[in-house]
Design a binder for these strands. Sequence first.
DNA 1: GGGCAGGTCTAAG
DNA 2: CTTAGACCTGCC
Length: 273
Amino acid sequence: MKIKSNSIDLKRTLLSGQCFRVKEENDSSFTIILEDRVVNIKEEEGYLIINSNNTDNLKSIVINYLDLDRDYELINEYLLKKDEKLKKVIEYSKHYKILAQPKLEMIISFIISQNNTVKNISNSIEKLCKYYGREITFNNNEYYLFPTLDTLLKLNEEDLKKCGVGFRNKYIINAVKEISNEKDYIRNINELNTEEALKKLMNIKGIGMKVASCILMFGYGRFDAFPIDTWVKKYFNTTNEVEIKKLANEKYKKYCGLVIQYIFHYERNRNVL
DNA sequence: GGGCAGGTCTAAG
DNA sequence: CTTAGACCTGCC
């Protein structure tokens, strides 16, 4: 299958640290695991060549995941008008998009991310999927889906330790319980405004401000929830999160989270990607 | 080997 | 309400 690329920069978008389960292949295509299937994407002259073990509804799933329908050009123009100093940041990030990733996976993944390195996070998630996710064969390789809520619910602390998540095992068990205790927990989050959604997520032990923001940003496409980390603090030259938040909210309004993510991307990756 | 990594919880002032 | 310490693990 072939769709227009809408000038997405696959490398920067997929390898920038927002996605923990992506593999860059030798032919410079990318393989990702998306909900119920394995998908390979290759960029070619303004188009994306898509392959998958399951072609049902594939087009709209990929478009949604890569956020291809959103007019980033328009947003970027708006932001640049608001703040000339963003020029370098936006120039670097203009073909970078915010992925819309599976929500449960985001919740668990970002709980694992706390006080951790990207490499460790990826390893843990990979093991979690390999041990407890459904196996899929694609192009003669084995892949594993992210485990379902019901499967996760059956795991004990030892099962999780085997995945190398360490002390976060208790957080995951607790989170999974909370989520399944409320009917449609995952969907209910989406009914709330961003501030309420953050609060609700943070009721789960192991989810703080940073993790909750990441979940809303990368799972729910909330461009006004944003993760403040060391890179962002460096850019603003202050460690005061309240100050950064206020400043960004006032200046960039409903795109403040996107700007923060651009800044993170720029500061963290510009020397390597 | 010690230190550290996209944080969060807990206990104590 | 603010602020140290502790925390699994793997890799530099």
